[in-house]
Design a protein around this nucleic acid. Sequence first.
DNA 1: CAGGTCTCCTGCTAGC
DNA 2: TGCTAGCAGGAGACCT
Length: 272
Amino acid sequence: MPELPEVETVRNSLKEIILNQTIRSISINYNKIIKNVSEENFISSLVGQTFLDIDRHGKYLIFHLNDYYLISHLRMEGKYLIKNEEEINKHEHIIFTFDDFNMRYHDTRKFGTMHLYQKNINIFDELPLKNVGYEPFDNRLTIDNLYNKFQKMKKPIKTTLLDQKIIAGLGNIYADEVLYSTRINPLTQTNKLSREDVEKILNASRKVLKKAISLGGTTIRSFVSSHDISGRFQNELLIHTKKTCPNCRKEVAKIYVGSRGTYYCPDCQPLR
DNA sequence: CAGGTCTCCTGCTAGC
DNA sequence: TGCTAGCAGGAGACCT
């Protein structure tokens, strides 16, 4: 499943291929991916538009075209494939055709989303980006800022870390990794964390994501084979999906927090 | 406003 | 061996 580092890799890979390409036609095989405009509107708006840049905010890709922003979330299974054959796979839902090849949005579980906005709209005031806060790298996200927000939250810190409005970019896997590296129990009530804990969490988030991004960037040849990504990332994980704690060698616990599978070490991450 | 639950969808797995 | 029921998982919608 693509997390922030994979999305960053997709962004960089796609930039090499589709920048300055003009959309000649679009075919839509499953339209529920597109959330805020009709299928007809989507097609008529985008045909003739050229990809000028690709940005990322949290786990969202932001495609810049002449007159529009196309905002894409891959959720668990989404990927962009570059092809030039005729045959269409049943999981290829949206196909953008350029002069010499096409780009296909492929998504087995159909959970991904696309939003289309005209460029005169501030996309950060609209769904889905209005619900996305700052990334850990963004210096507008300060310790005080985060600590103040945490004071009002009673839910488990694991759940808080998955809330994109609070910190953008952490998914289920990285939330576990961040909590493990800070030795904080995932069930700890968010408002019980000290300012020092918050600082640790912020630092760990930066570190974990930065490392993953750099790895994603170096291990991936092509976004086409997204399997390579998850394979490599798994080598770097310390706690998520592990059986034994790398620190104390005791058994890792698996619980559910907010119906998300959560791994932690009861010994190294005791509930305070 | 905070927080809980339901929903979307399908490949995969456990269990028969 | 073949079948089915149940599950996982980001984030929006909706409700309390």
